[in-house]
Simulated scan of single mutants.
Amino acid sequence: MTDLPSRREFLAGGVAAVLTATTGCLEDAGGFGSDDAGRSLRLTLTREDGPLRESFVVDLAETRPEWDEEAFAAALAGDDYTIQYRKPFFSTPEDPVYTRNEGTYYRLGSVVVDEATVTRPVLRLFEIDRGADSSEPDGVDAAELPTGDERAVRVAHFAARARGNEGGAPWGLVQRGGYVYRDEDAVDESVLLADSSTPDHVVYRDRVYSVEVSRERFHEPVYRATVEPVAETPERMEAILRAQFVDARFSREDLSPAAREVVRAARREGYAERHPYSTGYREVLRALHRRAYIDGNIRKDAGVDDEGRRMLRYNGVYYDYRLRFLSTDS
């Protein structure tokens, strides 16, 4: 699937200043309190070029790991295909994956059918305490290690760097404070996991780390791949995707001139206002069916249902849209 374009900063001044209403007070409407007074609500629209099929219907031979092709072929033939720990197709209800085969569109997924208990090596790295003399021990350069070890060092380094610091680490990669070896070939070829002559230190990005290896028990899900036919034509597939992801549809002719300006600004660089919102901004929020930002208890209701992808169809073009509050220093 294609990556979404990055969100751009909201439009400051200009159109925003013209459209922002000056009447009302923050305490009177929508459940705003004194600590919300400085917040602006920003709307950003990111165009999705082409039909939704181009984002959600994938070619497994080009975009997925090889086991997904095997999983699809097996499931299509009516055979069970199971894999431990790794979810086939990386498909979720919030982010489904579809593929096409001989004119039929299929929704790809998986279900958990068992649990496996296994012992796996875990690599953890720790920064060296240089001591008073600022000396450092020698270590093997990560670039000289086998590919599996080099990857392990790179991931474990994130965890070592994050200890005691704000900002965290990529926890989808880092597990148990280090790197878990799950590839049997990487284990067999590893230098860091060798029972004898294992290096005590490694060098990564000009920093020396001490090496700690443990073997720990994991309880991992076993997934069975699922393949379900859903459409026989591109038009039907597009309708399925619209029904799932497009939660607002309107055209330029449906909007007042002020609301059109809000949409235009949101498409260019984002649009933001403080509450109480202008007539044009309120009109757009209602067209998006996001009335909690206007009529509800904004502090408690607005944004509660913001998980997952939200899309708009405006003048026949798809847009990803996002609403979020900005503090005074954003």
Rank of each mutant, 00 (worst) to 15 (best):
A266W: 01
A61M: 05
G167C: 01
R268G: 08
K300H: 14
L19G: 11
E307V: 12
A194E: 06
A248N: 06
G296W: 01
R224Q: 15
V211R: 01
K87C: 10
L19Y: 01
T147N: 06
D114M: 06
V202E: 00
Q244L: 10
T44Y: 09
P229V: 09
C25V: 13
E238D: 12
V15F: 08
E9T: 14
A292E: 13
A61E: 12
D3M: 13
G103I: 01
D138L: 09
V227K: 03
R249L: 08
R324K: 13
A16G: 13
A194V: 01
L4P: 09
R310D: 14
T46C: 10
S190H: 01
A243Q: 12
G131R: 03
Y105L: 00
V246C: 09
V18Q: 15
Y105I: 00
E94T: 09
E150S: 08
V122A: 02
D295F: 10
R309C: 07
D133H: 10
D49T: 12
P137S: 06
E144D: 14
G131Q: 04
E144T: 12
V304G: 10
R47N: 10
A259F: 01
L288W: 07
E232V: 04
G308E: 08
R264T: 12
W67K: 10
S210R: 15
E27P: 11
P5M: 07
D28T: 10
A292D: 15
G50K: 03
D320N: 15
V15Y: 06
T279K: 10
R260W: 04
V222H: 04
A37T: 12
V202R: 00
L60V: 05
R299E: 07
G109I: 05
P276V: 09
V222R: 00
F250A: 07
F245D: 05
A292K: 10
G164S: 03
S327Q: 14
V118W: 06
D36M: 14
D49L: 08
G103A: 03
R309W: 13
I294C: 04
Y319M: 06
P88V: 00
R163M: 06
G14C: 12
L76V: 05
P199W: 00
D35Y: 15
N297I: 07
R236G: 08
A258L: 08
Q84F: 05
I240P: 03
R47P: 09
V317P: 10
A132M: 09
P199N: 00
T44D: 14
T23S: 15
D301L: 11
N165F: 07
V57D: 00
G164L: 05
W67Q: 11
E253P: 03
A17E: 15
V246Q: 05
V180N: 02
V213W: 02
E238Q: 14
L173H: 03
H219S: 15
E216V: 09
P5F: 06
T198P: 13
Y181N: 04
E54F: 02
V57P: 01
Y106S: 04
D305C: 09
A186H: 09
E216T: 08
D320Q: 14
G38Q: 12
V246D: 06
F72P: 02
E220Y: 02
F250V: 11
E228V: 13
T92S: 12
W171S: 10
V187C: 08
G172V: 03
P221C: 04
